[in-house]
């Protein structure tokens, strides 16, 4: 099938970018979205034009490295799917697709579709962990964990840190990412001692990174490739309020 692409091209962080139109006449429906971009890049290379830079690594939807806005939706139109797992059979002949990088002040564009998401790492470094030094752990079965808590924790822990939530949020808020980590650790008995300080530290770091705030719109939840639920944000709010007010 024939696909028309409009891709954001920007040489580097300093330069202005623009949308550039490309046409791919022979796209197989079995290709993944990124394989289609590979084909485009091969063609561009052969023509002597610089290929499109885009982040990707595992290509099986788990590393969280890939991602772009496809027609204004983070990771494209298929729910619960990263861009690398989106296959061209979900598009039709003649489709025009607009590809843009994640947009947020906290995610500056590096080149073309590549952005800098190191703000996420700094948020985790601020408190997204359980402080246990190697070797000091008790037996794995010393602390039973309710099956339901473990399952809910796992739901939140599935976050791959791709940044789609930020990209899609009209406020460029990182709340779903924050909430996912806060819920993952806060739902487990091991995470209790640092539960409140963790929420406060992570939220404070997110504010320093200049992410927006949550206004409960729910676009993040709709595009999250791992179906992280809005509830985790309520949990973050609860832990934060409890820490700040000593109630809740």
């Amino acid at each position: 099938m024939r696909i028309i692409l409009h891709i954001w091209r920007q040489r580097n962080a300093g330069e202005k970018g623009r949308m550039v139109r490309y046409e791919l006449p022979n796209v197989s429906e079995h290709m993944s979205f990124l394989e289609m971009l590979d084909v485009l890049n091969e063609e561009l290379t052969m023509k002597g034009e610089e290929p499109v830079a885009f982040d990707h690594d595992c290509r099986e939807g788990i590393c969280g490295m890939c991602g772009a806005m496809v027609n204004g939706i983070a990771h494209g139109p298929l729910p619960g799917t990263t861009l690398c797992q989106l296959h061209m059979r979900h598009f039709k002949d003649g489709d025009e697709l607009y590809l843009e990088p994640w947009r947020a002040r906290a995610f500056p564009v590096v080149k073309d579709l590549v952005v800098d998401r190191s703000a996420f790492d700094r948020i985790i470094a601020a408190g997204g962990f359980i402080s246990v030094a190697t070797g000091s752990a008790p037996d794995g079965n010393a602390i039973p964990v309710q099956k339901e808590s473990a399952e809910n924790s796992m739901d939140a822990a599935a976050c791959i840190g791709c940044g789609a939530c930020v990209a899609m949020c009209p406020n460029a808020s990182a709340s779903l990412f924050l909430g996912a980590k806060i819920a993952h650790l806060g739902l487990l008995p091991q995470g209790q001692p640092e539960r409140e300080s963790r929420a406060v530290a992570m939220v404070a770091q997110a504010n320093r990174e200049l992410f927006g705030s949550c206004t409960n719109i729910g676009e993040c939840e709709a595009v999250c490739p791992k179906d992280i639920k809005l509830e985790v944000i309520a949990r973050m709010n609860r832990d934060f309020i409890r820490a700040k007010c000593g109630v809740g």
Binding site: N71, Y98, R103, A104, R105, A172, L210, G212
Partner: peptide, 14 residues
Amino acid sequence: NRAARPIGYVKKDD
């Protein structure tokens, strides 16, 4: 929140 996204999208769906 407006300041959190200084450059908007060319195309944005909701």
